[in-house]
């Protein structure tokens, strides 16, 4: 189809000579216009996305450091160093822990809230708005609020615990709880997003299916859920799980501002390691290698999503 424009010259008929030089077909003009219309996008895509993507791969095989006068190709040395580095493994394990906690937490809660909201008709949009609020609020600002809520002495959480006669805790300063505190913030922030996706999925379930289920004898709420809601929501759920995973893999803001990966690397995550190596120590080559590892995980998840995407009705 795309070679339409090129074949235009092929149709010259004998009469044409008599009419004079054939005017440039406006269709050919359209093809040129089309290329002019996409040119800025194509160029920017190359400079800002595809080029850097190739660049990050290439960099990961060099020892380039920002400001260094020269660099050399060092093959897999960055990767060898990375795999030998304990921090990398800690960082990877922490990232995976974060994903494994936040994803099920935010998906299950999101589903539960969506089902609860949808099960009645009153105050629907109120609840939806409230639960969605954390998605909208600037995460950095809210992280700072969370930090104060988790303040060992004057924070709300410890205050509440104390009023129930329990021991307070230094949540973000303790290596045993820092990562889990970040997970809690992560879940708090992601629930509303997942809820809205589930609500969209619930709305798209055809009502007659419930009538049919009722006639077929599924009278209780649970049997209706088992027979209709859950199977119909299956693709949406898979989709939400993958999206949440991708988003969780990118966790950075809360770590950078609240714990800086600490204490003693207990909340070090991949993107944060990449950030410190690449932008604080300016070891671009090594940072690139970390990025490549991150990319492998995210692209694997994205490809998974692309496969699931076909099953989701509203996407």
């Amino acid at each position: 189809m795309s070679d339409m424009a090129i074949r235009i010259g092929a149709g010259d008929s004998p009469e044409q000579a008599a009419v004079g030089p054939r005017p440039r077909s406006h269709r050919a003009g359209t093809a040129l216009t089309a290329q002019a219309l996409v040119a800025p996008a194509a160029m920017l895509m190359l400079i800002i996305l595809l080029g850097p993507l190739a660049g990050v791969l290439a960099l990961s095989f060099t020892d380039y450091q920002l400001g260094a006068p020269s660099f050399s190709w060092i093959g897999l040395a960055n990767y060898r160093e990375m795999f030998a580095d304990k921090v990398f493994w800690i960082s990877l394990r922490n990232t995976l822990t974060y994903v494994v906690i936040v994803v099920p937490g935010s998906v299950a809660l999101g589903l539960g809230i969506a089902l609860l909201i949808q099960s009645g008709s009153s105050l629907r949009s109120w609840y939806r708005t409230i639960y969605f609020l954390p998605v909208m609020a600037t995460l950095i600002a809210m992280a700072i609020v969370w930090e104060f809520m988790l303040h060992p002495q004057f924070g709300l959480i410890n205050g509440l615990l104390r009023s129930f006669g329990m021991q307070g805790h230094s949540w973000l300063q303790d290596r045993n709880t820092a990562l889990y505190s970040l997970c809690a913030i992560g879940i708090w922030q992601a629930v509303g997003f997942n809820m809205v996706l589930f609500l969209a999925g619930l709305v798209s379930i055809p009502k007659p299916l419930y009538d049919a289920a009722e006639i077929d004898g599924a009278s209780g709420a649970w049997s209706r859920f088992r027979l209709v809601t859950w199977p119909m929501l299956g693709p949406v759920t898979a989709f939400v799980v993958v999206i949440s995973s991708i988003r969780s893999f990118q966790v950075f803001d809360t770590v950078q501002v609240l714990t800086k990966g600490g204490p003693s690397k207990s909340s070090e995550v991949l993107i944060y390691t990449m950030y410190t190596e690449g932008f604080e120590f300016f070891r671009s080559g090594y940072g690139a290698a970390l990025t490549v590892v991150f990319l492998v995980f995210v692209l694997a998840l994205t490809l998974l999503k692309a496969r699931l995407n076909r099953g989701v009705h509203y996407a």
Partner: peptide
């Protein structure tokens, strides 16, 4: 492509 991936280049 996640935005963090192209950050260094």
């Amino acid at each position: 492509i996640p935005p963090q991936a192209t950050a260094i280049p």
